[in-house]
């Protein structure tokens, strides 16, 4: 027994030549070093900074603050709760409306409904634009004096208040975000659907399954890896939302959202620690559901 084990170990060790080992450690080591340097060091630095008072300039000026910044945010900053509320609505909207719409669209296009090529390209176009560009385009369209206002015959003294009216601006922003998100989800799902073996669907049809049953019992489980990606993307995109809002409202508090608060506090002077605390809250919100979900799905895979 002992000798076999030793033999195996020795054989394994011998399998890697000296050169192999150097190459391997370089391939693993260099990216790891960069990852630690560029991701973990700043992340841990940010977490540390969020527990201090600091003007953001001299290291020697840092003072320990305990949980004071968090206390300030949770109990003394009403705009934080407005921002959280906007993030939550964003997540619900994406999760319940935009993402399902994207999946539905992908499914219909995959079934090659009439005009599917047209729909595919029409919904695909916004995906190639970055979120910042999306924000710029829609700002030009809807702002006072913008294109849509012009079509409606409204001049700058008499525009429809798309961005300033708090009864509707949330839906305007979410509509703009969905414009891109639906196409993105459609694209991801479509590429997944293309790889589903058509014989599965045929088999289901022969067994007398309805369209809905086929989708739910056959397609959806086959698409599990794509489903995970889509859920992750939906949650993360909703929480880290920033670009579109920044392009429309700037760094002010016109329509507060967590990403904007991080930026507003870190840029400018003397409150980087509060911005860091916002960033940590955002990080905690993102990482919580992600870990839970990924753990669960990996556990099922192992089973």
């Amino acid at each position: 027994m002992t000798s076999t084990a030793t033999n195996t170990t020795v054989r394994r060790r011998r399998a890697f030549s000296r050169k192999d080992r150097i190459t391997l450690s370089a391939f693993v080591g260099i990216p790891t070093a960069f990852h630690i340097l560029l991701v973990w060091v700043p992340a841990i630095g940010t977490i540390g900074l969020s527990f201090t008072f600091w003007s953001g300039i001299h290291i020697s000026d840092i003072k320990w603050a305990g949980i004071e910044n968090y206390n300030n945010i949770f109990t003394g900053t009403p705009v934080f709760w407005e921002a959280i509320w906007h993030n939550v609505i964003w997540l619900l909207w994406f999760g319940l409306i935009a993402t399902p719409l994207g999946i539905l669209l992908a499914y219909q296009i995959d079934r090659q409904i009439r005009g599917h090529r047209f729909y595919e390209s029409a919904f695909f176009v916004p995906v190639v634009l970055s979120l910042a560009v999306t924000g710029i385009i829609w700002n030009f369209m809807l702002q006072p004096g913008g294109f849509v206002q012009g079509i409606l015959g409204r001049d700058i003294s008499n525009p429809i208040s798309f961005y300033g009216n708090y009864d509707i601006n949330t839906y305007v922003i979410l509509g703009i975000a969905s414009w891109r998100h639906i196409g993105y989800i459609m694209l991801l799902y479509l590429s997944g659907l293309k790889s589903v073996d058509p014989s599965l669907k045929e088999a289901a049809a022969i067994d007398g399954a309805t369209e809905w049953q086929t989708f739910r019992k056959v397609i959806l489980p086959t698409m599990k890896p794509v489903n995970i990606i889509i859920i992750v993307i939906t949650v993360i995109d909703s929480l880290r939302a920033f670009d579109i809002v920044y392009m429309i409202y700037g760094s002010g508090t016109g329509w507060p959202i967590l990403g904007i608060l991080v930026f507003q506090n870190i840029s400018g002077g003397g409150m980087s620690m509060k911005g860091a605390a916002y960033a940590v809250i955002l990080f905690a919100l993102c990482i919580g559901p992600m870990i839970t979900y990924l753990k669960q799905s990996f556990a099922e895979d192992v089973k």
């Binding site: 006072p144 004096g145 700058i156 003294s157 208040s161 300033g164 009216n165 700037g250 016109g254």
Partner: peptide, 18 residues
Amino acid sequence: NKNVLDISWEGMRDLLLQ
């Protein structure tokens, strides 16, 4: 104007300009 929160200083300038 009814759209105070829709316009920034450029919008104010344009209202006067026009």
